[in-house]
């Protein structure tokens, strides 16, 4: 009963935002320049803010008394439903920026469409997130262009990043049974309806960046069902450390 389509899609959106926000937070103290340090922390903060609203709402839908902290910190790895893309390690700066571009080029039109959701809370989260995603796209696009159309070394790294991460882009468009039910109920947009916008954003940025998309026959998937890559356990060990060590610690 608890895993209704509305609960599941809300949880997936929350997990995507939390895990990518956490990845960005790992750059704190390590970014290449001060401005970028602030930028990455800002982007991460937006995502964690979105995740908080979504977890709180998921807990209300579920009705079992789980709040945002319990959902964020006290689940097992196979209970996280984020896309595999967002848990991929930061790698070098090119990897971080290509990952951000793929995610935000998808989520910007997603939130724009979800702002018209029949679910008032999801619509409210999306109307705010759309504004934030707009500058996430802009920031990551500008960097991907600078790196791709930069030196021989930066071009090589940006192309390597794209080759490594592109197999994870397809999962964003995946529609399984609960997702289909949520689309039909008018809670979330059909990802297929966003494909043209996503493709156009990527094409414009990559052309400018002199980068090329690898040709793929299939894509990686499993995150939505809780089957993660080998990186997820390490990420959660760090993310959950405080709650596991000091259960119920609060700010």
């Amino acid at each position: 009963m608890s895993e209704t389509p509305l609960f599941l899609v809300t949880l997936r959106l929350a997990d995507d935002a939390l895990i990518l926000g956490h990845r960005l937070s790992e750059w704190c103290g390590h970014a290449p320049v001060l401005e970028e340090e602030l930028a990455l922390a800002n982007l991460g903060l937006d995502l964690i803010g979105q995740a908080r609203s979504l977890y709180t709402y998921a807990g209300e839908i579920e009705g079992r008394g789980r709040d945002e902290d319990r959902l964020a910190y006290l689940r097992r790895e196979n209970e996280y439903r984020n896309a595999l893309l967002v848990e991929q390690p930061n790698g070098d700066f090119a990897v971080t920026m290509v990952r951000q571009l793929i995610y935000s080029a998808f989520m910007h039109p997603f939130h724009r469409a979800m702002a018209a959701s029949k679910d008032a809370t999801l619509a409210g989260v999306a109307a705010k997130a759309e504004k934030e995603m707009a500058y996430h796209v802009r920031h990551s696009a500008e960097w991907v262009i600078r790196l791709g159309d930069g030196t021989e070394e930066s071009h090589r790294r940006a192309q390597d990043a794209l080759n490594a991460l592109w197999p994870y882009a397809g999962e964003l468009f995946e529609v399984d049974a609960p997702m289909r039910a949520a689309i039909e109920a008018g809670f979330v947009p059909d990802p297929e309806s966003l494909r043209a916008t996503f493709d156009a954003t990527l094409a414009e940025v990559l052309a400018e960046a002199t980068l090329t998309l690898p040709k793929l026959g299939s894509f990686q998937s499993g995150g939505r069902a809780g089957r993660h890559t080998e990186h997820m356990g390490f990420l959660l060990a760090q993310l959950q450390y405080m709650q596991r060590t000091y259960p119920n610690a609060a700010w």
């Binding site: 401005e35 602030l38 922390a41 759309e130 802009r138 920031h139 696009a141 954003t201």
Partner: peptide, 27 residues
């Protein structure tokens, strides 16, 4: 609702000049 590219012109709050430059979108 602009996502990609384009620049704004912002006047300096100290001297009023429009000859300003964005260092970073994040402050």
């Amino acid at each position: 609702r602009r996502a990609l590219f384009g620049e704004e012109v912002v006047a300096c709050p100290r001297c009023g000049s429009a000859d300003t430059q964005k260092v970073s979108e994040f402050g």
